[in-house]
Design a protein around this nucleic acid. Structure first.
Lengths: 124, 124
DNA sequence: TCAATACGAAACCTTTTGGTTACATATCAA
DNA sequence: TTGATATGTAACCAAAAGGTTTCGTATTGA
C-alpha cells in the first residue's frame, strides 16, 4: 500500500476479522479484551486490527478508566456506499440509471427520446 | 488469506488498481492491452489483477479473435451492497432501521411503543 | 501499598501481495 | 508462410500484512 492510500476504507474492510469486529460493535461499545474473546488470536493482534479500523474512522475510542471502549462509526461506510452507487445503475433499473445521470450531471450522455422531441434519435 | 476466503469480493476491491479497472469496464468491454494503457505497470501485472477480478466474478471474459474482452459483472457487487445494508440502519433514519428489522424478521428485537399498547415500555 | 487487570508498543517472523522479466502459444494479416 | 500482435504462465523479488511474544505503563481495588 502506498502512503497516499493508507487508512483506506476498502483496505480496512478487506480483512474478515475486521469485518466481524465491525458487526460486534454494531450492538454496543466494547473494550479490546472483550472483542478478542471472539477470535482465535491474541489480544495484541485484535488491537492492531482496531488501530487500522480507527485510522479509517470506522471506529472511535473512548477511555473509561483503565478500559478503552471501541465504538462503531458507521458514517465512514458512506464512502463505500457512494462507490457502490456508481455501479448501481448497472444492475438496478432505468429509474436508478436516470437518477445516477441526473445526480452526476451527465444528462448529456443519455440518448433521450422525449415525446415532444423533433430530433431524430441516432439509435433506438 | 486462507483457502476458504480466496476470491473474496472484499479483497478483490481492496486494491485501487482493481477498482479503477472496474470503472473502466463500466463503459465498455476492453482487452487487456487497452486496459493496461491506463496504468503505470506492465500488461502482465494488469492481467493478474483481471484474474483476481474474474475469480470473484466481478468481470467475465469473452474471446474475440486473438483478443480477450473483459466485461464488468456488476451483479457480483450485490454481496457488498448486502453487507453494507446491515449497517445502513445506523446512519440513515428510523424508517430504514424499521425496514432492516422487518426484512430480517427481527421485529422482536424492537422496543415498539404502539398507540394501543397496554405494556409499559422499558425505556423511552 | 501493591497485586491484578487492561492496554499499546516494539521486535520479530511467515505468508501474501503486487510487481517484474522471460518465454510459449494463438491469431492476424501481408 | 511468416512476422507482428495479444495474451497467459512461470520464476522470481521486495514490501506489506497479519500474526506472535515480550515488555512497559495506567488504573483498579482489596
Amino acid at each position: 500500500m502506498s502512503a497516499a492510500q493508507k487508512h483506506d476504507i476498502f483496505q480496512a474492510i478487506a480483512d474478515p476479522t475486521r469485518r466481524k469486529i465491525l458487526k460486534l460493535l454494531a450492538d454496543k461499545k466494547l473494550p479490546v479484551t472483550a472483542i478478542s474473546r471472539h477470535f482465535p488470536m491474541s489480544r495484541t493482534a485484535v488491537s492492531k486490527h482496531l488501530r487500522i479500523l480507527s485510522k479509517s474512522k470506522l471506529v472511535s475510542v473512548e477511555k473509561a478508566g483503565r478500559e478503552k471502549l471501541y465504538k462503531l462509526q458507521p458514517e465512514a461506510l458512506l464512502e463505500l456506499k457512494e462507490w457502490l452507487s456508481f455501479f448501481e445503475r448497472f444492475w438496478d433499473n432505468k429509474i436508478s440509471m436516470l437518477k445516477h445521470f441526473v445526480e452526476n450531471e451527465e444528462i448529456g450522455k443519455l440518448n433521450l427520446i422525449m415525446p415532444q422531441s423533433n430530433e431524430e434519435p441516432k439509435d433506438s
